[in-house]
Simulated scan of single mutants.
Amino acid sequence: MTLCVGIFGGTFDPFHHGHLTLAADFAKRLHLNQLILLPAGQPWQKAHNTTLNQVSAASHRLAMTRLGAAQLKLPETEIIVATDEIERASPSYTVDTLAAWRKKVGAHTSLSFLIGADQFIRLDSWHQWPRLFDYAHLCVAARPGFSLAAAPPVIATEIAQRTAPAHALCLLTHGLILLDSELALDISATQIRAQIRASRSTLNAAAPPSLPAPIWHYIRQHQLYQSTL
């Protein structure tokens, strides 16, 4: 039986209930033996020039990812929080991350990488993007109401040639695309940060329903996402 490994990467700023649901669905849909939660290091396409877009310190995002991982109850899946990208001094490129993980898991392991639909339709802007399929399958998580019709022709071609059902991904090691309505993320970390900033202080603010209690406690403890105005 082929070993199935899935990588769920993101800034996780903060890690929220949407991430928990998506991680669980990802693991169950692909019958993953291992689920890798991979906080981003220095996402080169993220804007850093405004307070609203600034990415929190890697140490905080890693801590919140670990707290989130502890909330996942997946008895058939080993959950690993990886620090590969955080420990990398240079900007992180997904193709390098997947190449490194392919070496770790071996040539005969099915390796899948979860990506948001909004990122997927811009895949042709990524560094050496065609090589992603040399290392892993891509699983596309759509936001409710999001359409892949906006994908450029080069991505539409990949969809037509590579789309496969979930069970096929564990039969092959890499190269397929999973478009599955079960993989959907309807909570925005950007909105959560804006909501916390609007409260001016987390000390007496009510916990947002989209955040697990341990992560809300961490945000309050470290006074994250506070307005500088």
Results as ranks from 00 to 15, higher is better:
Tyr135Met: 03
Ser110Leu: 14
Val140Gly: 03
Ala142Thr: 14
Val95Leu: 03
Glu78Gln: 15
Gly68Val: 07
Trp101Asp: 00
Lys103Tyr: 02
Met64His: 10
Lys73Ser: 13
Ser59Gln: 12
Phe120Glu: 09
Asp124Gln: 13
Gln119Glu: 14
Ala141Pro: 15
Leu74Lys: 08
Ala149Gly: 11
Ala151Leu: 00
Ile86His: 00
Gly106Ala: 08
Asp96Thr: 07
Pro130Thr: 04
Arg143Tyr: 15
Lys104Glu: 09
Val95His: 02
Ala70Ile: 05
Leu138Ile: 14
Asp118Pro: 06
Arg131Val: 01
Ser92Pro: 02
Gln128Cys: 04
Pro75Met: 06
Met64Val: 06
Ser59Met: 08
Ala69Val: 09
Ala136Tyr: 08
Leu67Gln: 03
Asp134Leu: 03
Gly145Ile: 15
Ala149Glu: 15
Tyr135Phe: 13
Leu132Ile: 09
Ala100Thr: 10
Thr77His: 11
Gly116His: 13
Leu114Pro: 04
Ser110Asn: 15
Ala141Thr: 11
Gln119Thr: 11
Leu72Tyr: 12
Ala82Val: 02
Thr83Val: 10
Val140Met: 01
His60Phe: 08
Glu87Leu: 07
Lys103Phe: 02
Arg88Thr: 13
Gly68Leu: 09
Gln119Gly: 14
Val81Ile: 07
Ala117Phe: 12
Thr65Cys: 15
Gly145Cys: 12
Glu85Asp: 14
Thr97Glu: 11
Ile121Pro: 01
Pro75Phe: 11
Leu74Thr: 10
Asp84Val: 01
Phe113Leu: 09
Ala99Phe: 00
Asp96Cys: 04
Met64Gln: 08
Asp84Pro: 00
Val105Ala: 08
Val95Ala: 00
Ile121Lys: 02
Ala149His: 03
Gln119Pro: 11
Gly68Ser: 10
Arg143Gly: 15
Ala69Gly: 13
Ser125Tyr: 01
Leu62Glu: 10
Ala136Asn: 05
Ile86Met: 04
Phe120Lys: 06
Leu62Val: 09
Trp126Leu: 02
Ala151Lys: 07
Glu76Trp: 08
Pro91Lys: 03
Glu76Arg: 13
Ala100Phe: 03
Met64Gly: 05
Gln71Trp: 00
Ala107Met: 10
Val105Lys: 02
Leu98Ala: 04
Gly145Pro: 12
Lys104Asn: 04
Ala141Gly: 09
Phe113Gly: 07
Val95Ile: 11
Glu76Lys: 14
Glu78Leu: 05
Thr97Ser: 13
Leu111Trp: 12
